[in-house]
Amino acid sequence: MFGPEGPSLRELAAQALSSVERGYDLLAPKFDHTPFRTPDEVLESAAKALAPLGPFADGLDLCCGTGAGVQVLSGLCRQSVTGVDFSAGMLEVARRRVRSDVGPLTAWVRGDARALPFPAVFDLVVSFGAFGHFLPRELPGLFAQVHSVLRPGGRFAFPVLAPPRPTRPGFWMLLGFDAVMRVRNALWRPPFVMYYRTFRLGDVLGELGRAGFEAELRALPEFGRRDDGSPRAGLVVARALSPRRAA
């Protein structure tokens, strides 16, 4: 699961017993050598799906981590790209690994996605692999924040993977991981919020609508389809309606 350049079990344990912010500060130097980083295939497929919707002027990578999504935005946005994350350690790695001397102006901002420090200045907001860190009750506020930083008609996009079926080992692995995290958070403080099975597509699309978005799911054809014809991976693309239409 982890290569020789990835974190040791001891380092992972130290991360898991920390807060989310401190945990990612600790993991940051080795994050790109873990399976937690969004695979390049997903990033490339998302970029390909978003390209026809542009061109975009200004983009924001929400919970940017070490900057993989910023690199996607750099190929889609003409003027500026911003990465925001609450982990100083992740931002430090992002600053070092992402080239900012070519393409649109790049900025890095330390901030909480639940209280974004921006006005409505973005045409595109993306996020990759961060939603497990938000409890379901936090989604209305999170999506409202994203809506508040988008210009009318701007897009909010993020990939989703089809959940494994109960007949697959992956289903039980994710179920077990979430159960372990719930026990950990019941017994240890501060909590470390990271769940794989709480971000349900139907609920998410409903919350996006209530936050003032018009949302759709676009299949990512590079990942094929399941036996029932449903896509194995998709891209949620939500368009920000004007405040008057969203009311």
Rank of each mutant, 00 (worst) to 15 (best):
L12M: 15
A13Y: 10
A13D: 15
A13S: 15
A14N: 13
Q15S: 11
Q15D: 07
A16V: 01
A16F: 15
L17A: 06
L17Q: 10
S18P: 12
S18Y: 08
S19K: 09
S19D: 12
S19Y: 09
V20Y: 13
V20T: 11
E21G: 08
R22W: 03
R22I: 01
R22Q: 12
G23D: 07
G23K: 06
Y24H: 08
Y24F: 12
Y24K: 04
L26T: 06
L26I: 10
L27K: 14
L27Q: 14
P29L: 03
P29Q: 11
K30Q: 14
K30D: 09
K30H: 13
F31S: 11
F31E: 13
F31C: 13
D32W: 08
D32H: 12
D32A: 11
H33M: 08
H33G: 05
H33S: 11
T34S: 15
P35C: 02
F36M: 07
F36A: 13
F36E: 07
R37K: 08
P39K: 00
P39Q: 01
P39Y: 02
D40W: 06
D40I: 01
V42P: 07
V42W: 01
V42K: 00
V42C: 01
L43M: 02
L43R: 01
L43V: 01
E44Q: 08
A46V: 14
A46K: 00
A47M: 04
A47F: 01
K48D: 11
L50W: 10
L53F: 14
G54I: 03
G54K: 06
P55M: 00
P55Q: 00
F56K: 04
F56S: 09
F56C: 11
A57F: 10
D58C: 12
G59H: 06
G59R: 03
D61K: 06
D61C: 02
D61N: 06
D61V: 02
L62C: 09
C63W: 07
C63K: 10
C64L: 11
C64G: 01
G65Q: 08
T66N: 07
G67T: 05
G69E: 05
G69N: 04
G69Y: 00
G69A: 02
V70I: 01
V70W: 00
V70F: 00
Q71V: 03
Q71R: 11
L73H: 09
S74V: 00
S74C: 07
G75H: 11
G75F: 10
G75Q: 09
L76M: 05
C77Y: 12
C77Q: 09
Q79H: 14
Q79F: 10
Q79D: 14
S80N: 05
V81K: 05
V81S: 03
T82I: 02
T82C: 10
G83E: 00
G83W: 08
G83H: 07
D85W: 12
D85N: 07
F86Y: 10
S87N: 12
A88T: 05
G89W: 10
G89M: 04
E92N: 14
V93K: 15
V93R: 15
V93I: 15
A94G: 14
R96F: 00
R96P: 09
R96A: 15
R96L: 14
R96D: 14
R97W: 03
R97V: 15
R97H: 10
V98W: 06
